[in-house]
Amino acid sequence: MTSYYEASARERVAGLLDAGSFIEILPPQERVMSPHLLQLDTPAAFDDGIVVGEGRLGGRPILVAAQEGGFMGGAVGEVHGAKLTGLLERALDTRPAGVILLVESGGVRLHEANAGLIAVSEIMRAVLALRGAGVPVILLDGGQFGCFGGMGIVARLCDAVIMSEEGRLGLSGPEVIETTCGVEEFDSRDRALVWRTVGGKHRYLLGEAAEIVADDMAAFRAAAIAALEHARPDLSLAALEAEHAGLGARITRFGACRDALDIWRDLGFEAPDRLPLLEADAFRALAAGRRA
């Protein structure tokens, strides 16, 4: 098994796609870097923390982007965001079988906060424009920095989110909430609390993640191929009314729950405190028929 969690963005691209199929667009030697970081005396990266390009997955042509969490927590700046938007728009022209986003991001890069925020908005527009044109967008979330801030919103604009238990998905990170509201609101150092609130298992049980896999490159690859196969982008009124009903029902049913354990108990798990201990396969089997 090769850990997805431990891998770099480049290792993920290499491990996920068909061997030798990846061709990078604007590779590091093009040196398309952030001038804003340099202006603030902060080291910049040759690829601005995101790898984009073309390749094949299960024999089908795809476009792929991978954020590097090791560089500024995968945060979105002007160049970083424009590479992702440009890739999504490229797919409008080339109509691949899908776009695969290997996301690992804390959200907007503060050193260029305005540019990052606007870039995330442009990514959001581009994702929905692409899905509207019938090209599916599949997002993988299993890296060390999770998927937060604007990228957490982007995730839920996609056709499917594939997570490992180690993946985390949310809007405001636990540290941000603790810093702003106090440790009694969200103790970011309570790892069990963090993982059962924003981790892959809870997201899967809520229906936010379409699939949960072990922290294994091959498992992510297989799930991405399957998701590509089954995705049918649908942004119709009927589809959004159904989503609306589901989100409304979630507030009604779980709105008073204080902890993920309360939600899991409500979903029919007799020993919810044991769920975090299960391996992905056993967890998936137990969760069958019980997801919200």
């Binding site: 590091p28 030697q29 910049a44 040759f46 690829d47 590097e68 090791g70 560089f71």
Partner: peptide
């Protein structure tokens, strides 16, 4: 071909060889 190793993160570095 040009090659990149490492990541620009704390205590780390990236090396580009061309």
């Amino acid at each position: 071909k040009a090659t990149l190793a490492g990541v620009v993160g704390s205590g780390n570095l990236e090396v580009l060889v061309e």
